[in-house]
Design a protein around this nucleic acid. Sequence first.
RNA 1: GUGGGUAUAGCCCAGCUGGUUAAGGCGUCAGUUUGUGGCACUGAAGACCAUCGGUUCGAAUCCGAUUACCCACCCCA
Length: 430
Amino acid sequence: MKIIKRPNGTEDILPAESRDWQKLEEFLRTTAGIFGFQEIRVPTFEQTELFSRGVGETTDVVQKEMYTVTAKESVFTLRPEGTAGTIRAMLQNGLLNEALPQKVYYILSCFRHERPQAGRLREFHQFGVEMAGSALPSADAEVISLAKQILEQIGLKNIELKINSIGCPNCRKNYHEALRKYFSTSKECLCGTCQERLEKNPMRLLDCKVESCQEIAKDAPVILEYLCEECRTHFEQLKENLTALGITYVVDPKIVRGLDYYTKTVFEFVTTEIGAQGTVCGGGRYDGLIEQLGGQPTPALGFGMGLERLLLVLKNQGTELSQEKYCDIYFVPMGKEAETKAMQLTAELRKEGIFAQTDVMGRSLRAQMKYADKLHARFTAVIGENELNQKETMLKNMKTGEKISIALDEKFVEVFSGIEIADRLASEIQ
RNA sequence: GUGGGUAUAGCCCAGCUGGUUAAGGCGUCAGUUUGUGGCACUGAAGACCAUCGGUUCGAAUCCGAUUACCCACCCCA
């Protein structure tokens, strides 16, 4: 029989890595909590229209990357990103009628049908936050500083924050006009997709990677010069806020973001550590999205972080997140009777929250000792005929090799806890 | 969707111009004299050499197709 393999672009997270994931997730939750964000959990699949309306009909994500599934008569789409579903849930459950701002975070997996490569999977995991209700630049600064604190404290090095403003629909109208005028003079030299973009969404044209297009785009008008009064001051104040918070940034007029809902502020945290897919966190303001999804006009913003990209950077940097396997005590039974005793003691210790293990393989003493060593057991205790007769065993400290005797009676759990805590303190002092 | 690369044991891989019992390391298991791990040593298990077809007396090795994976473009986290 052949082994069935997992689908292309998916990953198994094995015990050796799941410890890192747990550590990362725990850290994300507490940091988001410190900033006043609370967890929201939403369905993995949604009505397809949520994404076409929310993310944008013209985006690549909607046009060619969605997993749309039919089950019975219903058609659904596996979420390609987290924002649309989160906003939908906030609207549907009336969260936006509560005190504003509403601040939520999520850890979930997203699905996009793209060709996999380094740092890009078809199912990938995202941590994201959304903050709804504030139009002020201080909200932008708060969200960005959360992202920054996470990336910094988790240990990322050499990350750069890029910011830009892509304006509101008002100023963008003028800008689109200017872009069309600029590009139409050399329309013939543009690549096929860019000629289409010119009509539908001329801003996309700016980050086309085709060399000839880049050449033409080089001197194209810059959005920042077309911002309306309101958007301009918003951007200026955001920069002041960032400076006040000691957050360094680079203004990059080229970052546009691929999702249509963004307005005003957009930003990315970029690294060079993991190949071509260097964006570890991306986000921005989407003041029109909530209305677009049927709610009252409400300003909002957020970001998403790619968790496997984060872990990839940490791995490439050689940053250790988690410690090794763990075991407080390993019992080495010899003989039937001893096995029962070891089993009972293990069970008792576990009830007290102590990491205890014993043999379930019927191995020899020597082999059991080797196994205990592999588990990084802190203590071992052999139980054989002698021990059972004398109701006493030697507790061996695997690090120091030192042995002390301990009675095999009803006090065992209590006595062992004391020894174990003392040992832990002693090793922490060193 | 478009390029390029790779495919040999659970993992990392040697095997050059066709003839080997397909090598080594990690890991796993057992042992190194009787009841105490790490180091070292010995041994064992584990591979239809991705699949299908072709050339040949003979293919892991050459050719073709298929599939899978990797990297890059595109796009994004």
